[in-house]
Amino acid sequence: MQDSSFVQLFPQQASTFAWQVDALFGYLILVSLVFSVPIILALFYFSIRYREREKYAVPKEIHGSMVLETLWSIIPFFVSMSVFVTGAIVYFNQYTPPDDSMEIYVVGKQWMWKLQHSTGQREINELHVPAGRNIKLTMTTEDVLHSFYIPAFRTKADTVPGRYTYVWFNATTPGKYHLFCAEYCGLNHSGMIGTVYVMDPKDFDNWLSGNAGGETPVQVGKDLFENKLGCASCHAGGPQQRGAKLEGLFNTEVHLVGGGTAVADEDYIRNSILNPASQVVEGYQPIMPTFKGQVSEEQLNGLVAYIKSLSPNAAAAPAAPAAKKPDEKAPAGKKADGKEPAAK
């Protein structure tokens, strides 16, 4: 990875879309050269050829040229449009996580990254991921803005208090990579750095089993839902339940009281827990109390993960990666996600 013995001039490429960003960069360098080299050459040529030969000479007056003006308006326009379109395509790729992504939850906090795998392992300022698998990070923060930035993967997104943002990548090359906080977040901003370990899938499985840590987010959520917060008393129990039905809810469109619809995504669920009265679903009374201040960001992640798991078809299929390793003595969360809710 990083080699301090020589001056590095180009960053490593370690994700599937890194080459696209680099290609775009190359294209822009090409565009810059194609436009600036002639301008610079013209500046030098004119400066020499038309240098002052006689004091106070009166050169021929030239007012302008409609043809030239049109040309150098239209051509840059089409060039900049090509930059816009290619930029947009790369952007689309960077921010559209594939459906089969393995999910990891990220909470930023002054001044550390707290990460949790869907299998339960927790990490601080370190992230272990397998090479060659799509990984989606669902991110938020406990305090101020941060920005999750892995230069080698060419991806970055701010984490915003009060909502979720997402980053995904598919790491190509095993190795160690920098993880930076890129949005200024106060005193120890430059200390909010970490390391991403991209591992061979086999090594990753070993790492996972060696670090069988804690409950999975779904289990955390289930526990909160059924026991600690008592959500189940309203949101479970069949037709006479007072709260909205949550099974199959995720990523569907819900109709709200007072008209309007919303897509029940992560932010919607989060908001419904913290500000229930703001988005009441048609057919229900606004009786749910707010849970603001009672749940931490990580517990919220758990609740969201659990509610997502109640919709096995709509949610991305996070179960897949875990299911691939039947040989391991499965840590508690191994067969998590999509399966358990069916039992409910």
Binding site: Q20, F35, V83, F84, T86, G87, V90, R154, K156, A157
Partner: peptide, 24 residues
Amino acid sequence: GLFLIGGFTGLYLGALGLDVHLTD
């Protein structure tokens, strides 16, 4: 000369996919 570089690097930052890597 300098504004050429300043202006063009602005184009780099205005290109969506590249800005994700370059911003901040």
